[in-house]
């Protein structure tokens, strides 16, 4: 009991400290993340770090649909896979340059996102979950069976590395930096999107769709656009991922993979950008640390989903609003200052 309260005190203290010093802490973290590849030569570490970055981007894309729109989507892996395959085919078959290949993967994924969004998002509730689940499976089956295009279960090997203006980025370090830039751009984009009018309508729809419609929000349109944006991000990252790992296989994009992203963002916090970072980093690194438990990973994930939903539906950071904490502290301080000066007057 006592230990619990100490922990709680430490946690509130930490949260308050972070809330008061947001900018310096962010600056230190960003510097650390940029300096990281130059501090180590370990390829394995760099690879895990790059995968973390890619996973955060995918987590952010999924959080747009699941956290901010409030509908569970299994399409993450499907769009990721479509982006990877389309981008690769664009580069290897159609002779596109690397960046154009990424744009192509992004466009194709967005197109499929639109195809799913058109019939499904005019309906409310669970339909999206089911359709995306089926869609993910269809995509995997097609990737597996369309031998001429995707080489089926053999996978595509020797995908050329990322190249920008004729310069090939083969090293893990360079790819880490590229992934970091992608993550940076996507994070800024998502943050602005959420705080824009569009993001506010999205949250309004999640919380009460009838009220949102009464306020004049075109809910079907907003949901469709949001879903397509999510698909575009996944597709772009997919094409980058293919050029980074240089080998893709249909089994990397099965619906079980989508489920892992769902677990990641639930763990960190639905509808929270810091939560997405925390959840994706934690659940990318933890399985690597606990190789002996690898067999039990999905078992633990299943239990985690039930426990989180029952006891912490907001995830670890879902209910945390640093801006609000900061505001409260400032208010408290100003109140104390007023009290203090008031007491001084009395003497």
């Amino acid at each position: 009991m006592k230990k619990n309260s100490v922990l709680k005190k430490a946690w509130t203290g930490l949260v308050e400290f972070v809330a008061m010093h947001q900018i310096p802490i962010m600056a230190v973290l960003i510097l650390l993340v940029i300096a990281f590849p130059f501090m180590t030569d370990n390829k394995y570490l760099l690879r895990i770090a790059t995968l973390c970055l890619i996973n955060i981007v995918l987590g952010l894309a999924l959080n747009l649909v699941q956290g901010y729109m409030g509908q569970m989507s299994f399409a993450t892996a499907a769009f990721w896979g479509i982006g990877a395959y389309a981008g690769t085919i664009g580069v290897m078959r159609l002779g596109m340059p690397s960046l154009l290949g990424m744009a192509f993967g992004m466009a194709v994924a967005g197109l499929f996102g639109l195809l799913i969004a058109l019939p499904t998002l005019k309906l409310k509730g669970y339909y999206l979950s089911i359709v995306t689940m089926g869609f993910c499976e269809i995509v995997r089956i097609v990737e597996m069976n369309w031998q001429d295009l995707t080489r089926g279960s053999l996978g595509i090997m020797n995908i050329p590395a990322v190249s920008i203006f004729g310069f090939r980025f083969k090293s893990g370090r360079a790819n880490y930096i590229i992934a970091l830039i992608i993550l940076f751009v996507v994070t800024i984009f998502v943050k602005n999107l959420i705080n824009s009018n569009f993001g506010l309508s999205l949250k309004a729809i999640r919380d009460d769709d009838s009220a949102a419609e009464t306020m004049g929000i075109n809910i079907v349109h907003v949901k469709r656009v949001n879903f397509v944006i999510s698909a575009l991000i996944c597709g772009f990252v997919g094409a980058f991922y293919a050029q980074y790992v240089s080998f893709i296989h249909p089994s990397s994009f099965a619906s079980g993979v989508s489920q892992e992203y769902i677990v990641m963002i639930i763990f960190g916090g639905l509808g929270s950008i810091p939560g997405t970072f925390l959840g994706c980093i934690a659940l990318t690194i933890l399985p690597e640390l606990m190789r002996s438990l690898l067999q039990y990973r999905l078992l633990i994930y299943g239990a985690l989903m039930v426990i989180m939903m029952n006891f912490m539906p907001g995830g670890l950071l879902g209910n945390l609003d640093l801006g609000l904490v900061r505001k409260k502290i400032l208010e408290r301080r100003s109140r104390e200052a007023v009290k203090g000066s008031g007491g001084g007057d009395g003497e």
């Binding site: 409030g70 569970m72 509730g125 489920q259 769902i262 078992l299 299943g302 939903m309 029952n310």
Partner: peptide, 26 residues
């Protein structure tokens, strides 16, 4: 528990998915 708390529908959906995953992997 979710029913008692009147939780959003997605929570229940995720919860059954979790139970399913657990059974499958067990």
């Amino acid at each position: 528990r979710l029913r008692k708390k009147n939780a959003p529908r997605m929570s229940a959906l995720i919860s059954t998915l979790g139970v399913g995953t657990f059974i499958e992997n067990a």
